[in-house]
Design a protein around this nucleic acid. Structure first.
Length: 746
DNA sequence: GACCTGCTGCGGACTG
């Protein structure tokens, strides 16, 4: 069938679908099944294998999975089976629920959304009749295991598929480990391997994704990869120099500059250019922090006010209340007048926000993968190009400017990332993390589910059948002892493990279900209105002014006990201070940066000022022999130009420090405090011959290794190994030390 | 000098 309307028999897949679903397709007026849908039907219809569907965002992945799955459910005449659909976002569950409900209503298949915002009544209804489609988050699924362990076998008795949406969002993350464990526990409860289906638009390595979906598979995972038509991309990178000058941006007559005291001139210049280029259409603007989102949203809103337009620029980030975020989403979706969002990664994936004309990136993107995801939001209409504008601010050079400024690091990183994007490369997920923190959560959860478990049971489910297969028996035993010493678990006479008093208390609180931790935040309240939450590290004081939700406020009162900040509108304001570490750059990006600097041809997508800045950086790169020289003296430091990613650089820093040198990661280079290169070369030679156990010993020097939610419960060495598995490339650092000490070029 | 995700059961008061 290329055309169901014509009754053509070209499509075997169409004929395989249940008659009621064929009628639905007919009614919808589809003229053909998309490529991914055509291929997914025979793979899924018999529920006899695992499948990955990788296709572009608009290629109809949900239907590709659900048309054959629902056909299977209808086989017995009426629906007696069930499907478990797991999604990383509540908003996505709500979107998918409306789409599926529209289809399933006519098929008499119940569709149940299940997450924290869904009423207990709806959940009860599913528990009574556990058939149809259950759309759920990993956290709510965890809660089912903890609270309804005894009825799980009944609930999942007719389960035919487990579908995981946005598969890429789970790989390499704590939530991914949790999800893999939950899928293994579903199989255990069902007493059989329930077929798994993974959906994603951004998978690079299909084999990695297949191993994530089912490790140690008896039969291979079937992979359906549907290439997207190459979409045209228009890119422009604009350069700016921070001179410290201030622009007369938006002052009303007689108004005293207020923001200008806090905002650099380049920010005003970037805001002013964005305003001119984007006002009048729908766009997404990505500064790299919530603080900058607030700054730009406030400036752009005031520019609209100044010119007498209704506001077109709306902030969107994770600290804003659900209501304020929905206001922004509604403005974007409405389509009756122009609206742009100034946002963080909250608008990078998931929810449908309608057509977006262009994407503006302020400062270097956090990663190529993220840039790719952001661009996927633009030019979705047929025949329209995706448009990307990057705004890069560089410092004015002085005699004491550092390497990063002289090499125009931010600009060069943006150029490198855009070039990698055009080559269709992006960072693979780092799947080697051990995540013993999540193992602790799963141990406590299984004890709750089964009303107690032996060490052997836990070992079998979590390590032999589950995702924690890099944990050996002595380590597993050490973790159990560590949990015992903290009263999280106790052992009965017969060997059965139960919760201790402390364990009982933690598992019985709803905060247990999430595998990841989050910081303490203060509620920001204006009058009766909850504006959102603010992660506060330095406590706020009454009288202080802040920018929040794109507007300026003065702090009236702070209630530390209730974690609330009471504010009222104000004219002045410094943006709220957010803490956190920087984005981590991949090896390949740093190598591409080296190539960008070593070449001499102009880069096609730079404006005149950006090209000038790049030329400057290239001249410095050439005159300092950076193409061939890896070790050199700069002031009171010795620079080691590794041109490697932050995992390798951080590991090299750990190894240098363990040898008594003061070192730190400076991006393209590692900097060591030393007067000459002699000592540094000697130490590099020593590091170059280190064995794995010697590098492991160096981990002892790291001060703070508590990274994930349950790390505080783990033995010290397990914690350090876990830290290294997530954040350090120790083997790479040893190899780099060898290269550096032999005087080879990058 | 970063970002994001998620969260139950139960008792008691109240309503129709």
């Amino acid at each position: 069938m290329n055309s169901p309307a014509s009754g053509s028999t070209e499509s075997r897949s169409f004929d395989l679908l249940d008659e009621r679903i064929r009628r639905w397709i007919w009614r919808e007026g589809w003229t053909e099944l998309r490529d991914a849908q055509e291929r997914a039907v025979p793979a899924l219809i018999d529920a006899d294998r695992d499948v990955i569907i990788a296709a572009a965002t608009a290629a109809g992945k949900t239907e590709a999975a659900f048309l054959p799955i629902l056909s299977n459910l209808l086989r017995d005449g009426r629906c007696v089976g069930s499907v478990l659909y797991v999604s990383p976002l509540k908003a996505l569950i709500n979107d998918q629920w409306s789409r599926l409900e529209q289809l399933c209503e006519s098929l008499d298949i119940p569709v149940t959304g299940w997450h924290g915002d869904v009423s207990a009544g709806r959940k009860q209804r599913f528990l009574k009749h556990s058939t149809g489609v259950l759309l759920i988050t990993p956290e709510s699924l965890e809660a089912l295991f903890v609270n309804r362990g005894a009825s799980l076998a009944t609930i999942f008795s007719t389960l035919r598929y487990v579908v995981v949406d946005e598969l890429h969002a789970f790989i390499g993350a704590e939530r991914g480990m949790q999800l893999q464990s939950l899928m293994a526990r579903v199989d255990h409860v069902c007493g059989r391997a329930v077929p798994r289906v993974g959906l994603s638009a951004t998978l690079g390595d299909m084999q990695l994704a297949a191993r994530f979906l089912r490790a140690r598979a008896k039969q291979p995972v079937e992979i359906i990869e549907s290439g997207s038509a190459g979409q045209e991309l228009k890119v422009l990178i604009k350069g700016f120099v921070e001179t410290g000058a201030r622009l007369d941006f938006d002052l009303a007559p007689g108004e005293r500059p207020a923001l200008e005291d806090d905002v650099p001139g380049s920010t005003l210049e970037v805001a002013s250019q964005i305003y001119r280029a984007l006002r009048g259409s729908n766009n997404l603007i990505f500064p790299n922090s919530r603080r900058l989102v607030e700054n730009y949203a406030s400036l752009l809103r005031r520019a609209c006010e100044r010119d007498g337009y209704p506001n077109e620029f709306w902030p969107h980030h994770g600290s804003l209340s659900k209501e304020l975020r929905e206001e922004t989403e509604r403005a974007l979706k409405a389509g009756d007048r122009p609206a742009s969002a100034v946002c963080t990664t909250t608008l990078e994936l998931g929810i449908d926000i309608g057509a977006v004309k262009s994407v503006a990136q302020i400062g270097p993107p956090p990663s190529v993968a993220s840039l790719r995801q952001r661009l996927g939001r633009s030019g979705r209409r047929k025949g329209e190009a995706a448009i990307l504008r990057c705004y890069c601010v560089e410092a004015e050079l002085r005699d004491d400017s550092d390497l990063s400024d002289r090499l125009r690091e931010g600009l060069v990183q943006s150029v490198a990332m855009v070039r990698l994007l055009l080559k269709r490369w992006f960072e693979p997920p780092r799947a080697g993390g051990l995540h013993p923190s999540t193992l602790v959560q799963q141990i406590l959860s299984i004890i709750a589910e089964r009303g107690g478990a032996t060490a052997i049971d836990l070992w079998q489910t979590l390590v032999v059948d589950g995702p924690f297969d890099t944990i050996d028996k002595p380590t597993f035993a050490a973790i159990l002892r560590s949990l015992g010493s903290r009263d999280l678990i106790v052992q009965e006479q017969g060997g059965l493990l139960l919760h201790g008093v402390a364990g009982e208390r933690l598992v019985n609180h709803y905060a247990f279900y999430a595998s990841f931790s989050s910081d303490d935040e203060f509620s920001v309240i204006a009058g009766n209105r909850h504006l959102g939450s603010l992660p506060v590290s330095h406590p706020l004081t009454p009288g202080q002014s802040i920018i929040f939700a794109g507007q300026r406020w003065r702090v009236e009162d702070v209630d530390a006990e209730k974690k609330s900040v009471f504010v009222h509108p104000d004219r002045g304001g410094a943006p709220p201070v957010f803490d956190g570490a920087g984005a981590r750059v991949h090896d390949e990006v740093r190598r591409e940066m080296h190539r960008v600097l070593a070449e001499t041809e102009p880069v096609a997508f730079l404006d005149a000022r950006a090209q000038m800045l790049l030329d400057e950086a290239r001249r410095y790169f050439a005159s300092s022999n950076l193409a061939t020289q890896s070790i050199f003296v700069a002031g009171s430091s010795v620079m080691l130009a590794t041109w490697s990613g932050d995992w390798l650089n951080d590991a090299l820093v750990v190894l240098l420090r363990a040898q008594g040198l003061d070192a730190w990661n400076q991006g393209p280079a590692v900097s060591v405090r030393a007067s000459g290169t002699g000592t540094v070369r000697d130490v590099l030679q020593r590091i170059a011959t280190m064995t794995a156990s010697e590098t492991t010993a160096a981990l002892q020097t790291i001060q703070n290794v508590d990274n994930e939610k349950w790390d505080w419960t783990l033995p010290d060495d397990v914690k350090r190994t876990a830290y290294a598995s997530l954040r350090l490339d120790l083997a790479g650092a040893v190899a780099e030390a060898r290269r550096l000490s032999m005087g080879m070029s990058a």
